[in-house]
Simulated scan of single mutants.
Amino acid sequence: MAVRRAQRTSFATITLILMVLVSVDAASDNNGQYSPCGDTTVARSDGFSLGFAFAGKTSFYFNTTQQLSPCDSRLGLSSSNSLFAIFRPKVDEISLLTVNSTTSLENNGYMVAFAGRKYAARSTPAFVANSTYIVTSFTLALEFQKGRLQNFYWKRDGCAKCSGSSNFVCLNNQDCAIKTSNCKNNGGTVDCSLGIQLAFSGTDKHLQALNSWYEVANLRQYSLYGVYSNLKDSLTNQYNSFF
């Protein structure tokens, strides 16, 4: 559970909220596949390993036209300056994954979610950051059929949540972005950690429906990221008080 620079195998920080989310009720996890580059089928309440790769947009394409999974060695991501984050959320629970990298994402401006090898699934590249702006809030839906991952879908609801706020800029009429100069790692005051709201749809290996995406869709008018951010800050403060 870390952000990793593949070339140097050095680790950055995943915030405390992630460890809380993925460790709850581990006894009910019957999925023995822990690598995001391995194939598996899952049931509700199993853990499911997936990865996020951060790199330039063209880095995710083989011969400039064919998008491959970051697990595919033909992309050569492991020999570049790409960054990786690995998570293991619980199937069919709404989770907020947070990435707090000590390395700037400006040079790795796009993000792709991935899992599987023979049955490889990957999302389209999503813009994260450049030298001017960073998008910090994402919603990702995972679609399963009979417990096997089929697709990732980025869900966007436009810029309504940041409309009228001087702290945000609307990019392409779909993403609320923050100026990178306002981020703490650039000397600013804003925590620019990435928050990825995760939900599931389809069926598990027992053909039970996965419903957490529909719950998210019904709650889109509420700021779940704000709720989780407050919880993350509370847990982090409690953690820091021990040291």
Results as ranks from 00 to 15, higher is better:
D39I: 14
T58M: 09
S45G: 05
K57N: 13
A43H: 08
G56K: 12
S59Y: 00
K57A: 11
D39K: 09
S49T: 15
T40K: 14
T41G: 08
S49L: 02
F48Q: 02
R44T: 01
G51I: 00
A43R: 15
F48W: 02
L68V: 05
G38K: 11
F60M: 13
P36V: 05
T41W: 05
S69V: 06
G47D: 09
T58F: 07
F62I: 10
Q66I: 13
T40A: 14
R44G: 00
S45N: 14
N63Q: 09
F54L: 12
N63K: 12
V42P: 04
A55C: 10
S49K: 11
S59D: 13
S59P: 06
G51L: 00
F60G: 03
L50V: 13
T65F: 08
F60P: 01
P36M: 01
A43Q: 13
Q67F: 01
D46Y: 07
F60K: 01
A53D: 06
N63S: 15
F52K: 13
G56T: 12
D39T: 14
D46H: 05
F48R: 11
F48T: 02
F54I: 03
A43Y: 10
G56A: 11
F62A: 12
C37R: 02
Q66Y: 10
G47L: 15
Q67R: 06
D46R: 09
N63V: 15
G51S: 03
T64P: 05
T58Q: 10
F54D: 07
K57W: 08
D46A: 07
Q67P: 00
V42S: 08
Y61H: 03
T41Q: 11
F52T: 09
F60T: 05
L50M: 07
S59E: 06
